[in-house]
Design a protein around this nucleic acid. Structure first.
Lengths: 208, 208, 208, 208
DNA sequence: AATGAATGAGAATTCATTCAT
DNA sequence: AATGAATGAATTCTCATTCAT
């Protein structure tokens, strides 16, 4: 728990500001993870920072805004990875999918180290919302698939359903993965990718 | 005076009671679906029934209790269907899976008629926790899979992941399905079943 | 607990009505005693009768009304005794006071047999209101004192204070008395009467 | 006006906090007195302070807690006085009793200035449970009596009854006193003390 | 900026009373 | 009459947000 406010590190006001912003973000990540977005209160968040409740509002206008900021921060870290993969996807859809899914699993595995570990095991983790990083995967995956279909590298199937299916898979299998010890991202990736790639050829083709 | 009271619960009073209990249950199902369990309030539920706030407490002690009742009811409605399917599943895993997924899609398609239509279009529906109905279907699916694996009718794969994957798929594809007009449960079922059945043979086998 | 409603004794509607009225009164006496007037609910009362909640209102308009009815009933039983004592009070103030106080203590001792006994011992008994029987004592005692003072049989002291003091004494000592086992009305009476009679001569005289 | 700070917590904030805590305590004392503990609501209390409803809970968790705080505060204010009186009571039981009763009457006379005056006249004041202040005074009185009896300075009488009698007297005579104009605490004190001291020698002695 | 008490809208719940049966 | 479910006002309490210091 970072008690930044009480340790203005080197006399720099700016440093404190940045540190407080991060402290709130960290605390929010923890609390959202522990209690769930809906259930947790702003006080739960701020209590963990050691800051005063009013201070929260110097940085974020509301609980929603921290949530978004948290998501943005996640997306900022995650999106470049995906873009890079996309760039060298070429015709290797499998390679791309594997890399993307793997990146996502690595991402959440790393995320959880900051907070999910200290949760009572077996407790269900409410899956609050579609976070931006997930949305990013979704869009990327979807566009790669669309591209592949157009180029004739992939069968023409229901893209909406397929993209939804992929994102769903990644999310749920990801959650399960995090419940296990040790967290094995490779196995989870393998599972997802094989299920998708194995299943796609069987999917009903679109007529048009 | 006629002491007719005990056996025939067919008076108007009894009817109203049953109807109210169902009304609350229905409203709760809707509201849980629309707002999510955590966010919705007892008032949200009762408002939708047209009953008075106090009336809620004549039937259920709390939001939690309705949720449990809902789970019971969902299970009561689904389980027999699934059990029946299960009974004649034999070695026809595909037939069984198809029937189960189809039952789920029919269920949610029917559900939405009661409420999703009257919602302002375009309004985002914050997602939906795992409802008791979903849990019931998939517990069944899971046990059938386990059975199949034990009998050697299905490859030995990571059952937890597979069950999670199936739930995820049904849920997300189901959501997408509901956004389309007309709602085509057959197509959605076909999509899910084929993806799963097609993908399963490719899944990594468990060693043990 | 009288379950009168389910045993219409001899076909007489009137009997049931009277019996129900009494059942409610008895239940109210019990519940007021056990929980206190303010805390107990109409449901607490009616539950004990075995009647339906709505039935309460066929007999009494409100909780207040039962309370008053209860008090009236007490007064009806108590007042005649006092009047009789007064009639033969003559100049024997001590005899009168002793008889009056004794009558009051006997009254409450008898009352409590119906309900106060079953209370957890040591629990404080909230002293809800000045009941009519108490008011009756008050008025009687006051008028006898006034008479005595006018006739010159008693010193002219502050009558309001004295009457208040007497009533207070009877009430509080009475409560204490009821907490003891066995309930000794004679001792309590002796205590009160001696305190009052012993104290009165010392009281400051009024000038007028 | 000078900042006469007694101790470090002299900020405006601290002052407000202390003032609010007292305001709630005062309001509670009034409301408990006027309506009785059971009947009054937290709203009744907070309404009288002019604070917002939520503010109550910044200071006390519940109505019960204010009551306890009130008891503490009452005891804190009274006990020293009584202890001091007690200390120099020696064999002067009369002096002590007079001082104690007088302190109580002064207290309630002062209390009523803050609220009873502004009440609609003639409105009946439903009586008043034993307040913590009363309990404090009389616990002291009781222990002094016990001491006196043990030292042989007072006759061995029924102490429970005597204490109850004193409480009752002070309470009822106190109520009457407050109804008169001008409020004459000296006269009321004189009345009570003389009645008690005059009466005690007549009381039946305990055998043991 | 930081603080943390005050605010008050809103949630859950209770219960006296009504009313259809 | 008796019944007991329905009603809704009233109550307790929470918590996001504001604001004086």
């Amino acid at each position: 728990m970072s008690q930044v406010a009480y340790l203005p590190p080197a006399g720099k006001r700016e440093q404190t500001k940045v540190a407080n912003r991060l402290a709130i973000l960290d605390a929010a990540r923890e609390v959202f993870g522990e209690l769930g977005y809906d259930v947790c209160t702003v006080r739960d968040i701020i209590r963990r920072t050691g800051l005063a409740s009013g201070t929260f509002y110097n940085y974020y206008k509301s609980k929603d805004e921290v949530f978004d900021a948290l998501a943005d921060e996640g997306a900022r870290r995650f999106k470049p990875i995906l873009k890079a993969l996309h760039a060298r996807a070429d015709d290797d859809f499998e390679g791309y999918l594997r890399a993307a899914v793997s990146a996502y699993f690595e991402f959440i595995a790393h995320e959880q180290e900051s907070w999910r570990l200290q949760r009572p095991p077996g407790e269900t983790i409410p899956h609050a919302r579609t976070t931006p990083e997930i949305a990013a995967v979704f869009e990327e995956v979807r566009s790669v698939m669309a591209e592949g279909m157009e180029r004739g590298n992939a069968p023409r199937v229901d893209l909406d359903y397929l993209a939804a299916a992929c994102i769903a898979l990644a999310r749920e299998v990801g959650d399960k993965m995090l419940e296990r010890r040790p967290v094995d991202t490779a196995a989870a990736t393998d599972f997802c990718v094989k299920l998708i790639l194995g299943g796609v050829p069987s999917l009903p083709r679109l007529e048009d």
